[in-house]
Simulated scan of single mutants.
Amino acid sequence: MTDFIVIGGGIAGTSAAARLSELGQTLLLERETSLGYHASGRSAALYESNYGLASTVALSKASSDFFHHAHGGFLSPRGLMFIAGHGQQDAFSKACETFNVAPIDMETALAKVPILNPETVGQAAFHDAAFDIDTDRMIQTFAKTVRDTGGTVKTGQDVTAITRTTHGWQVTANGETHSAKMLFNAAGAWADPIAEMAGIKPLGFSPMRRSMARIPAPGGHDLTGWPMILDINETWYAKPDAGSLLVSPAEEDPMQPFDAWPDDMVLAEGIARYQDFVTEEVTQLTSSWAGLRTFSPDRNLVLGPATDDPSFFWVAGQGGYGFQSAPAASQYVADQVAGRASELDQATRDALNPQRFA
């Protein structure tokens, strides 16, 4: 019998498994043949600590030291630019305050992003405290920590049965049964189905599709120094990536858990909204994909023991904030298991507590 079984090999599961492996023998089970296949592998990979609800911001800020210093750091400079149309001054001012970004004049904005259209872009704001995350190295670093501390990472594991025993849990995957004292549900969009399989009351998670298109560098520009660009109404965003530009419609379409793919019409509508603010027409997509961002009913993360069984832990509801919250979220999970005091304030802990759904 192991101490901990973690179901789900995305960033939530791998980070939790890494922290738990320092407390006891840990087994990480991932259904796909590679880690971070679903939402984690389709992330915009940005660290922006002011983004999200108050509890998410608290987790992101508490993760800062890890991102900047652990294992040589996982961040590289990107920057964030907000843009607004003419006549959107009130919404623009609110966004500047929320995200702590400073307004810049149009000449400065065009120097940073030459394709902006002054006829449609009325205001712009920028700050440099936004960073690209090396997401793959982050997941692999956490997985290596599990292995280095004597734990096991298994991919290609289809969990078909979960049974409560007098000593903990039995999890059957690929015909093999594993036993552990505690079970951690980091199954992303499948968090509720995993809970139901274990006889735990589901919490009502909502997987939401988010699509992405990759387009060639607009106008042949070198995008190396361009920031991420976000419409203040969050109806689209664009981010440089490996010499191309990623454009997302920023949609949140409710879906059942599945291996998501983009809707062509949704992509087209999002690209049209993006094109309204730039001078270069999109004539080609080099690729497109979609992922499921899974939210709890109140859109806060859920980190802690289930109300109906304290040996079943929720590590779920990341809702698109999985990477930027993972270092602190996983630390908080381990702190609870170890009975240690957390650096998170009481309001944040209350917002993350599964007991709020009791």
Rank of each mutant, 00 (worst) to 15 (best):
residue 261 W to F: 13
residue 286 T to A: 05
residue 245 L to W: 00
residue 241 D to C: 01
residue 329 A to I: 07
residue 240 P to R: 01
residue 331 Q to E: 15
residue 253 D to Y: 12
residue 247 V to E: 00
residue 303 L to W: 03
residue 344 L to V: 01
residue 292 L to K: 07
residue 288 S to L: 02
residue 256 Q to M: 12
residue 328 A to F: 10
residue 299 R to F: 12
residue 282 V to I: 14
residue 241 D to A: 03
residue 340 R to G: 00
residue 242 A to D: 13
residue 291 G to Y: 05
residue 311 S to Q: 14
residue 249 P to H: 09
residue 244 S to P: 01
residue 265 M to G: 12
residue 341 A to I: 11
residue 263 D to A: 10
residue 345 D to C: 07
residue 285 L to G: 00
residue 335 D to W: 07
residue 295 F to H: 12
residue 258 F to P: 01
residue 349 R to F: 08
residue 282 V to F: 02
residue 348 T to C: 13
residue 313 F to E: 09
residue 256 Q to G: 09
residue 275 Q to W: 05
residue 353 N to P: 04
residue 308 D to I: 06
residue 352 L to E: 06
residue 302 V to D: 09
residue 326 A to F: 04
residue 271 I to D: 06
residue 346 Q to Y: 12
residue 320 G to E: 02
residue 303 L to N: 05
residue 338 A to F: 01
residue 307 T to C: 14
residue 341 A to M: 11
residue 314 W to V: 06
residue 347 A to T: 13
residue 318 Q to D: 14
residue 276 D to R: 15
residue 289 W to M: 11
residue 354 P to T: 03
residue 305 P to Q: 10
residue 337 V to C: 06
residue 272 A to K: 15
residue 267 L to T: 00
residue 341 A to R: 14
residue 232 I to W: 07
residue 301 L to Y: 09
residue 288 S to H: 13
residue 328 A to Q: 10
residue 343 E to M: 14
residue 265 M to T: 15
residue 290 A to C: 04
residue 302 V to A: 09
residue 282 V to C: 06
residue 281 E to P: 08
residue 290 A to F: 03
residue 237 Y to A: 02
residue 327 P to A: 09
residue 288 S to N: 13
residue 323 F to K: 02
residue 276 D to F: 14
residue 258 F to I: 12
residue 309 D to C: 12
residue 251 E to M: 03
residue 287 S to P: 04
residue 349 R to T: 14
residue 254 P to Q: 04
residue 259 D to T: 07
residue 281 E to G: 00
residue 354 P to E: 05
residue 327 P to D: 08
residue 287 S to M: 08
residue 318 Q to H: 15
residue 324 Q to P: 03
residue 305 P to L: 10
residue 248 S to I: 02
residue 253 D to I: 14
residue 328 A to W: 09
residue 302 V to S: 09
residue 354 P to W: 03
residue 302 V to P: 08
residue 315 V to H: 07
residue 235 T to V: 15
residue 251 E to G: 10
residue 334 A to S: 12
residue 283 T to V: 13
residue 246 L to R: 00
residue 338 A to G: 03
residue 352 L to G: 08
residue 348 T to L: 09
residue 293 R to I: 06
residue 304 G to K: 11
residue 233 N to A: 13
residue 321 Y to A: 14
residue 326 A to H: 04
residue 314 W to F: 11
residue 333 V to F: 08
residue 234 E to V: 13
residue 255 M to N: 10
residue 234 E to T: 13
residue 240 P to E: 02
residue 335 D to R: 05
residue 350 D to A: 14
residue 327 P to R: 08
residue 305 P to I: 10
residue 333 V to C: 12
residue 305 P to C: 11
residue 326 A to G: 02
residue 302 V to C: 15
residue 342 S to C: 08
residue 254 P to M: 05
residue 328 A to R: 10
